[in-house]
């Protein structure tokens, strides 16, 4: 199949109107041809966007609880953990702004802030927070926060200098092992993404983000 043929077929591919044979031939071509791939993706975005044109409508009262009651109970987890995570996120914010505020302020203010933070951490069985700049070409491009608790988690904030892309997020352990955490989509400007860690934060040396084009960013949480 030629580029012209694939491009002409792109609307039908996006709307599932192409025959199986046409689809197979076109997809074989698209796998090798970035220009045609972009064309098919663009048409798929149009097809997707048409779904957003249906007017929203509020469902009948009680809809949310009826949906939630249908989710498998075995996988639903207690509120305590959610509250712990929520509290920890708020504490991250408090810690970040608290430190900024404390810079240059009187020592007793800092001590008071730290006491409050420690009390907050203890309330959710947390141990400590870590934060580090996310460094890439041109210097600091965002921040990474880490929380050591049960569970431990990391939270990545992409700065406005990071280009729109899907970034693969990995943690590198102190033993040098790379563990995939997931992928983070950055569109335009700031974006944040978080994930639970499969082990304690103290085992994390750094968090790495790699874009589809290979650009790498890294935050050293533990030296």
């Amino acid at each position: 199949m030629t580029c012209d043929e694939v491009k002409a077929l792109a609307p039908e591919l996006a709307l599932n109107l192409a025959s199986g044979e046409q689809r197979a031939a076109a997809l074989g071509h698209v796998a090798r041809c970035p220009s045609c791939r972009r064309e098919v993706e663009a048409m798929s975005e149009v097809a997707d966007a048409i779904l957003l044109l249906a007017p929203p409508a509020e469902p009948p009262p009680g809809f949310e609880s009826r949906v939630l009651s249908r989710l498998p109970a075995a996988r639903r987890r207690p509120w305590r953990r959610v509250l712990a995570v929520a509290a920890a996120v708020v504490l991250t914010a408090a810690l970040s702004s608290g430190l900024t505020y404390a810079m240059g302020a009187h020592d007793r203010h800092l001590a008071a802030e730290q006491r409050e933070q420690q009390a907050g951490l203890a309330a959710v069985d947390g141990r400590y927070f870590a934060a580090a700049p996310l460094l890439g070409e041109g210097g600091r491009q965002g921040q990474v926060f880490g929380y050591a608790g049960r569970p431990s988690w990391v939270y990545v904030v992409a700065g406005s200098g990071m280009s729109g892309d899907v970034y693969t997020v990995d943690v590198v352990t102190s033993a040098g092992r790379k563990v995939p955490l997931g992928s983070m989509q950055v569109w335009d400007g700031r974006r944040a993404w978080g994930a639970l860690l499969p082990f304690d934060l103290s085992r994390v040396a750094s968090v790495q983000l790699v874009s589809g084009s290979g650009t790498t960013y890294s935050a050293q949480l533990h030296p």
Binding site: L51, L52, A54, P55, P56, A57, E58, P59, F63, E64, V67, L68, L71, P72, R75, R76, R77, P78, W79, R81, V82, L83, A86, L196
Partner: peptide, 25 residues
């Protein structure tokens, strides 16, 4: 992941669009 807080927020965020499309169709 079955997080109740996220589940409630997820349903709340998308329910009018999901129900709206279903109703339209």
């Amino acid at each position: 992941a079955g997080d109740p807080g996220a589940s409630a927020a997820f349903v709340r965020r998308f329910q009018s669009r999901v129900f709206g499309l279903a109703m339209t169709l």
